[in-house]
Amino acid sequence: KELVLALYDYQEKSPREVTMKKGDILTLLNSTNKDWWKVEVADRQGFVPAAYVKKL
């Protein structure tokens, strides 16, 4: 499975999103959308801005 690194803190703004902290390592589930990537963090799945994460 592919992992991404959170480059910035992100606070979810809708139930479809997830909160992450800078430095978090997240499991990447889907990166087909260039703006929003689906990730899993702490047993929750949701979207984060693609610009806020980097593939490892």
Rank of each mutant, 00 (worst) to 15 (best):
K1I: 12
K1N: 10
K1D: 08
K1A: 11
E2S: 12
E2A: 11
E2F: 11
E2H: 12
E2V: 14
L3C: 12
L3N: 06
V4M: 05
L5R: 09
L5A: 06
A6W: 01
A6M: 02
A6I: 03
L7P: 00
Y8E: 10
D9L: 03
D9H: 06
Q11H: 14
Q11E: 15
E12D: 05
E12P: 14
E12I: 06
K13F: 05
S14C: 11
S14T: 13
P15F: 09
R16C: 15
R16L: 14
E17Q: 11
E17M: 06
E17P: 04
E17F: 06
E17G: 11
V18P: 01
V18G: 02
V18Q: 03
T19Q: 05
T19L: 03
T19Y: 04
M20N: 00
M20Y: 01
M20E: 01
K21G: 05
G23I: 01
G23Y: 05
G23D: 06
D24S: 08
D24Y: 05
I25P: 01
I25E: 04
I25D: 00
L26D: 01
T27I: 15
T27N: 09
T27G: 11
T27V: 15
L28A: 02
L28K: 01
L29G: 01
L29W: 06
L29M: 08
L29E: 03
L29P: 00
N30K: 07
N30S: 13
T32S: 15
T32H: 10
T32C: 13
T32Y: 09
T32N: 13
T32M: 13
N33A: 10
N33F: 08
N33T: 06
K34C: 11
K34Y: 08
K34V: 12
D35R: 13
D35Q: 13
D35I: 14
D35M: 12
D35F: 14
W36M: 06
W36F: 07
W36A: 02
W36N: 02
W37A: 04
W37G: 00
W37H: 03
K38A: 09
K38P: 01
V39C: 04
V39R: 00
E40Q: 15
E40N: 06
V41F: 12
A42G: 15
D43W: 08
D43E: 13
D43C: 13
D43N: 14
R44V: 07
R44D: 04
R44N: 06
R44M: 06
R44F: 05
R44C: 06
Q45Y: 08
Q45H: 10
Q45K: 11
Q45W: 07
Q45T: 12
G46A: 03
G46Q: 01
G46F: 08
G46E: 01
F47M: 09
F47D: 05
F47H: 05
V48Q: 00
V48K: 00
V48F: 02
V48P: 01
P49S: 02
P49A: 02
P49E: 03
A50I: 03
A50L: 02
A50S: 13
A51Q: 12
A51V: 09
A51K: 15
Y52M: 13
Y52E: 03
Y52A: 14
V53T: 05
V53Q: 01
V53N: 01
V53W: 01
V53M: 07
K54T: 14
K54A: 13
K55F: 10
K55I: 14
L56I: 15
L56R: 03
L56K: 04
